[in-house]
Design a protein around this nucleic acid. Structure first.
Length: 147
DNA sequence: GCCAACGTTGGC
DNA sequence: GCCAACGTTGGC
């Protein structure tokens, strides 16, 4: 799961009450569907810093709550406001995530060096999705790199 | 700041 | 339903 550290960094998550925050602001249908349809409490994910001087994996997080409507879509003052969303028919969703472990920064360039990760969706040519699935194999490989 | 890649919009 | 135009993402 990608976040721009200028907006929400791994340290912001660490500093939040119970190290838990809503994953707000997803405005892409594919990413939304992954979150809404596939994530369940107890699932784990990597927290990835994007659009910053040192892009890469910064920590391990856990999904704490099934998807629920993203409040920012209803807030006209928010940059995430969506005039097409209604309370009855929300378009965008959050899950709550908890920080399990802040890790060393595992740089994107290092991820790209591993053949075992060459098929990873995150690393696919032209990928811009902010939420992408990780296979069990990829997960284990990355956990090893972090330990 | 550049630009490749991709998603969304909207006219037809 | 097609597809051109436009906007966004995100590494570099």
């Amino acid at each position: 799961m990608k976040s721009e550290p200028d907006e929400v960094s791994i340290d912001d998550l660490a500093a939040a009450p119970r190290a838990t925050l809503p994953w707000f602001g997803v405005r892409n249908f594919q990413a939304r569907n992954f979150m809404r349809d596939q994530m369940k409490p107890g699932d784990r994910a990597f927290f990835y810093h994007s659009s910053c001087p040192a892009p890469g994996i910064a920590g391990i997080i856990e999904i704490r709550q099934k998807a629920y409507p993203d409040a920012t879509q209803f807030d006209p003052k928010s940059s995430y406001f969506d005039p097409r969303a209604t309370l009855a028919a929300p378009r965008w969703f959050n899950v709550d995530v908890t920080l399990l472990q802040k890790t060393r920064l595992l740089p994107l360039a290092e991820l790209r060096q591993h053949a075992a990760l060459s098929e990873m969706r995150l690393l696919a040519r032209g990928n811009r999705l902010s939420i992408t699935p990780v296979t069990a194999q990829e997960w284990r490989h990355i956990i090893k790199l972090l330990s």
